[in-house]
């Protein structure tokens, strides 16, 4: 491994990628759909930062505009209208 990639900005990217990973696993694992919605919001936030880091500000702004308020609320309305946990209890 060459030493060029061991920069501080790459360390920041690695830590934010860890956040995405943890929240993605959290979405898959939790049975309580409310918690899953919160994890999805966190994943959207961290991915937006990664898009900015990859020099794509339009994509980052799209992810921000949709993931910051609208996506969470639409999921919450859907959870309210159906069931709160995944196995139907």
């Amino acid at each position: 491994m060459n030493v060029d990639i061991l920069t501080l900005m790459n360390l920041v990217d690695l830590l934010i990628c860890l956040v995405v990973l943890v929240s993605a696993i959290g979405v898959a694992v939790h049975r309580n759909l409310l918690a899953a919605v919160v994890f999805a919001g966190v994943a959207s936030l961290a991915v937006s930062y990664l898009f900015l880091r990859l020099a794509a500000p339009d994509v980052a702004m799209t992810e921000a505009a949709i993931g910051a308020g609208l996506s969470t609320v639409i999921f919450l309305i859907a959870v309210r209208k159906t069931r709160e946990t995944e196995d139907g209890s």
């Binding site: 500000p57 339009d58 980052a60 702004m61 799209t62 921000a64 505009a65 949709i66 910051a68 308020g69 609208l70 609320v73």
Partner: peptide, 17 residues
Amino acid sequence: TPGGGFQGGAVVASGVL
């Protein structure tokens, strides 16, 4: 600036929300 119709429309809908 970055952004455009779709992003701005989503922000307007968030205001109504």
